[in-house]
C-alpha cells in the first residue's frame, strides 16, 4: 500500500510538470488553433539559461525569476519574428515551421551548452521531517510551485483587464479588434506567457530527468496528451489532465508493465479514452451547424 501511495504521489509530481506544459500548449491553441510542437524545446532552452545563471553565481530564486522574464521575451520574439509571417498559411505549413523551430532550438542548445547530460540542483532541501518514503521534498515542492503558477494564471485571466482583453482576443478576434483591443499584441503576450509557463515546467523537471537538449521530448508528448485528454479548449481540464496522465504513467510503469514500454501503454490508454470520448474528458460537446 505504501508503495502504491508513493507511486501515486510521485506520479502527481510528474503530473504537475505535464500540467504546466499542457497549460502552455492550450494557451497558444486557444488563441491560434495551433499546437506548438516547439513548446518543449523552448522550455528546455529556458532551463539551460537558468542553469547558466546559477553557474554564474546567481541565487536559485533570482535565476528562476530572471529565466521566466527571459522566456517571456523569447516567446514574444518568436511570435513577432517568425510565427506572424505565417498568418493564414495552411495548417500543415505552420506545423512544419514548428518542426523547424524545434530542430533549431534543439541544435542551438546542443551547440551552446554541449550534449553532455548535466545535473540541475533542486531549490528544495534534501530531506524533510514528514512524509519520508512517500514523497521527496523536490516532488512536493514542484507540485506546490505548479499550483501557485496555476493560481496566478487563473487570477490573471479572471481579475485583470489585460487577461480579459486576451480572452476576448482569443474568443473573437474581429469583435475584439472593433472594441479597440490590439489582437496581435495579445497574441504575442500569449506566446510570452506560454513560454514562461513552459520554463517553470522545465526548471521543475530538470532535477528529475536531468538537463540535456532532448529532456523535454517525452514531457511534451505527455503534456500534449494531457491537453487533449482534459479537453484542449479548457485550460483547467488540461491541467487536471496533466495530473491524471502523470499518475497513470507511473502506476502503469510500476504495476502493469516494465519501464521499457510504459510510454506505449500510457498513450494507448489515453487514446482508448479519446476514442470513447473524442473531445476530451472535461470539454463541452461541440455542436457544428451545417
Amino acid at each position: 500500500m505504501a508503495a502504491l501511495i508513493h507511486q501515486i504521489l510521485s506520479g502527481l509530481a510528474m503530473g504537475s510538470i505535464y500540467a504546466c506544459v499542457a497549460l502552455a500548449v492550450v494557451m497558444i491553441y486557444q488563441a491560434t488553433h495551433l499546437v506548438n510542437f516547439a513548446q518543449g524545446e523552448m522550455a528546455m532552452f529556458s532551463t539551460y539559461i537558468a542553469w547558466a545563471l546559477i553557474n554564474a553565481g546567481v541565487p536559485y530564486w533570482g535565476a528562476f525569476f530572471l529565466t521566466i522574464i527571459f522566456s517571456f521575451v523569447l516567446g514574444m520574439a518568436i511570435e513577432r519574428l517568425i510565427i506572424r509571417q505565417f498568418d493564414g498559411a495552411p495548417v500543415l505549413t505552420v506545423v512544419i515551421v514548428f518542426i523547424g523551430l524545434l530542430v533549431i532550438i534543439n541544435s542551438l542548445a546542443g551547440f551552446l551548452f554541449s550534449y553532455t547530460i548535466k545535473s540541475f540542483d533542486s531549490p528544495f532541501p534534501e530531506t524533510m521531517s514528514f512524509g519520508r518514503g512517500y514523497i521527496s521534498p523536490h516532488e512536493l515542492g514542484s507540485i506546490g510551485v505548479v499550483l501557485v503558477v496555476l493560481a496566478l494564471v487563473y487570477a490573471f485571466f479572471r481579475f485583470t483587464p489585460l487577461g480579459l482583453a486576451m480572452r476576448a482576443a482569443a474568443q473573437n478576434p474581429v469583435s475584439a479588434r472593433l472594441v479597440g483591443i490590439r489582437v496581435h499584441r495579445m497574441l504575442a503576450i500569449g506566446w510570452g506567457l506560454a513560454a514562461a509557463i513552459g520554463a517553470v515546467a522545465g526548471m521543475m523537471a530538470a532535477p528529475i530527468v536531468y538537463l540535456d537538449p532532448n529532456m523535454m521530448l517525452g514531457i511534451l508528448l505527455y503534456g500534449f496528451a494531457a491537453a487533449l485528454l482534459g479537453g484542449i479548449d479548457n485550460p483547467w481540464g488540461a491541467a487536471l489532465g496533466g495530473f491524471i496522465v502523470g499518475v497513470l504513467e507511473n502506476v502503469a510503469g510500476a504495476y502493469l508493465v516494465g519501464e521499457e514500454i510504459k510510454l506505449t501503454v500510457a498513450l494507448a490508454i489515453i487514446i482508448g479514452v479519446l476514442v470513447a470520448k473524442p473531445s476530451g474528458l472535461f470539454s463541452r460537446a461541440i455542436v457544428t451547424r451545417v
Partner: peptide, 16 residues
C-alpha cells in the same frame, strides 16, 4: 552541432 539549426532555418525559409 549546427547542421540541424541550418536545416531548421532552411525549412522555415522554404515554408515562407
Amino acid at each position: 552541432a549546427l547542421p540541424w539549426a541550418i536545416y531548421g532555418v532552411l525549412l522555415i525559409l522554404i515554408m515562407y
